[in-house]
Design a protein around this nucleic acid. Structure first.
Lengths: 157, 157
DNA sequence: GTTGAAAAGTGCTGCGA
DNA sequence: TCGCAGCACTTTTCAAC
């Protein structure tokens, strides 16, 4: 069997397949095959290889949060009392479902979070009750997104 | 035909279908049908309705950026010289492929960006050459993500 | 709106080159 | 390693409830 370590050098065909599927994961293999002028079996082999190696982690359905009543997207700079409290804080923040991303960062803030809420009341509740209640968190700075101007995946190659 | 406005009140079945597919968009309808104890046809009707309304925007293949050599994730607080330059700046920033998210925000920064780069050299190039070259951008503050502790979609219901 | 089954299309697995 | 062909499966459609 092949080397399944982190190192993976995708060739042009691999990159093209990923490029097509990253934008719409529902496109059938046969159609990709037609586009790239190879057989459907080849697409299948390449996909299996990339799934085995772990390059492809799965696929997500993209939904429009606003359409189901989640109107507010905000970023949160989080200050910890002590950097050592990071691991505990993460475990507690994981229970707050409104947090969709959490990063441990260099720079001004200890951590950086992205949260999605229904409305301003919901946001206030998450900030005041849920997040401020986490042990080790000193204070937070909130940036509310008024418009998501760009939202896309990385461009390969 | 039905009302296709922004307002949509998903019932329990809709939410359950979304909940299953948001985590893995490759699960076949027939299997969802078995789980929720309805017929495959019903799943299909509900999905079609939600696609028509725009709740479902599509599906993305999730890939591991690190596995294909993109090691660095960073957030960027962007200061504009004048707020009115926002629209032009967005158009220029759209051409920088390393930017995967861009938000127009309240608070300290005019805009907030998330960028993905291969390595520190790549990041430096994007920051110094590409982003600083955009007209209207005064300065930026960079937060490099050392660890993505949480990455998920919103929890429905 | 839901069901169940038939029709159409896709994905998977050999063998051959 | 790639391409082709047959089988199994899923999606889609539709008449009936």
């Amino acid at each position: 069997m092949e080397n399944r370590s982190q190192n993976f050098e995708p060739d042009n065909l691999d990159l093209q397949i990923l490029g097509v599927l990253m934008e719409d994961a529902t496109i059938p293999y046969t159609e990709i095959a037609k586009k790239l002028i190879v057989s459907g079996g080849t697409i299948h082999v390449r996909m299996k290889k990339m799934q085995d190696i772990g390059v492809i982690k799965g696929s997500h359905l993209m939904i429009d949060p606003q359409k189901i009543g989640y109107d507010i997207c905000a970023f949160l700079g989080i200050f910890l009392e002590k950097g050592s409290q990071y691991k505990d804080a993460v475990e507690n923040l994981r229970n707050i479902k409104e947090i969709v991303e959490l990063h441990y960062c260099t720079g001004l803030y200890s951590m950086f979070a992205k949260i999605i809420c229904r409305d301003t009341n919901h946001l206030r509740h998450v900030l005041n009750e849920d997040i401020q209640g986490v042990k080790g968190i000193q204070r937070t700075e909130t940036f509310i997104s008024l418009e998501e101007s760009i939202k896309r995946q990385i461009t390969l190659q």
